[in-house]
Design a binder for these strands. Structure first.
Lengths: 237, 237
DNA sequence: GAATGTACGGCACTGAGTGCCACACCGGAA
DNA sequence: TTCCGGTGTGGCACTCAGTGCCGTACATTC
């Protein structure tokens, strides 16, 4: 059937329009179905819940990301693969800026939709996390690192995406995401690599060279933080 | 009224018991109320939704964290304050291990509850994030760093918490969280500090002091990575 | 003892979501 | 052509979460 996708799209458009016009709570599924020219029962054949109509192709997107990761080059650094996947996710929004912005403005106002978006994001996070864990060998020791790395990448993505959406979806956010991910990877890279290197045998303190960067006038606590961070000896409280 | 809290607790206990015994969907609010010895209407006076009965004091917890952050010593490094807050959150679970484990086993099986937990976690994330942003001065440039830092701390917390819950809630997870946060802070510290150093008028390279720690025999690429992380000048791909 | 405030019970109602059956359409097989 | 199974839709009835409203019981205050 060619009409299936059409009906689904009509329902989604109708839902978003009505939610924006009358409010989410004040809009019933009957009204959405009526506007799309189908029966109420048909709505629930295409969407499990009222909220789902706002994110019609989220499942397909997640599946695409999963497939991308399954097919990814396993000689590439895992973190780089995840970074690329984040660009893919971003592209799903930038492909249709108008719709993305409409959805964003809606989700900002409607709490159930906001929560829905958060759980959606957490699914990407989970997929990323599992990929990293698969690549890093599945050790329980590496789990923390994998989760933090995945969270950092997703956070960077969301931050860039939100900024782009707030600005009305103009311009190309991909370079910004690239920069953000580069920055994140620069911070996490040594940690991810360092953890694996530091595991077999703690290095003796005498065998170290210390280097840190500080502007003049930096408060002492920040200097201490730097040194602690560099040496991994944070002893504080 | 002394009975208010009592009724609320009874409702929550009844809900968790029934959900565990008969399943979440198969349990109606009427049954929960009946088991707690109150009217159905009373249930909805204490909980906004059916799910809320499983997390009866989440709002209070979040409020407590918010208050802690509001009253936190502003001379302490912001990241350390957040780390302490994470311990506070963890303590809320470890205070009553049996209940925490019961809830965990339930949420693992019931999707609506899982999603509820995710959004709950995201609220802590948001509070952490806003605190960091307040402390770092509110620059738009620092936002990425704040969000990543908050996400990393929350991720570490969740990782340690889940591990503890999976193990049945035995032992004290606080040392593990401490170690995890220390590790995360070690990775993020230089990055966070580095960004701030670059913020207020790029400091001239001559005005900096560089300190880095490396065990002997560290490969050159790792040294470069470290320095890039410390200086925030990552140029690579 | 009256007035006020608060928490609970009961009732009716809306609306999301589901199960079931009937119907329409489309392809292939006889 | 007719018969056929599979699929997508419409209509109907039903359960149940969640809300609004009102009456009532109880505790506090003046």
């Amino acid at each position: 059937m060619a009409g299936q996708r059409r009906i689904r799209d009509d329902l989604s458009v109708a839902a978003i329009e009505l939610f924006a016009a009358r409010g989410y709570d004040a809009t019933t599924v009957d009204e959405i179905a009526a506007r799309a020219g189908v029966a109420r029962r048909t709505f629930f054949r295409h969407f499990r819940t009222k909220e789902d109509a706002v994110f019609p192709d989220h499942d397909a997107y997640l599946k695409r990301i999963q497939e991308f990761l399954d097919a990814a080059d396993s000689t590439q650094p895992p973190l780089d693969v995840i970074r690329e996947a984040a660009h893919l996710v971003l592209a799903m929004f930038t492909d249709d800026p108008a719709t993305a912005v409409r959805r964003y403005r809606l989700t900002r106002q409607v709490e159930p939709l906001r929560e829905r978006e958060i759980t959606a994001s957490s699914r990407y996070l989970r997929v990323f996390c599992e990929y990293l864990h698969r690549r890093t060998g599945g050790g329980d020791e590496a789990r923390l690192r994998d989760e933090v790395a995945a969270a950092a990448v997703v956070t960077a993505h969301n931050q860039v995406l939100r900024q782009w959406l707030r600005a009305g979806g103009t311009g190309d956010p991909h370079p910004r995401l690239d920069e953000a991910l580069r920055s994140v990877a620069a911070a996490l890279g040594p940690w991810l690599a360092g953890s694996r290197a530091a595991d077999p045998g703690t290095p003796t303190p005498g065998d170290e060279v210390v280097v840190v960067v500080m502007p003049r006038g930096t408060p002492m606590w920040r200097v201490v933080q730097q040194v602690e961070a560099a040496t991994g000896t944070a002893d504080d409280g």
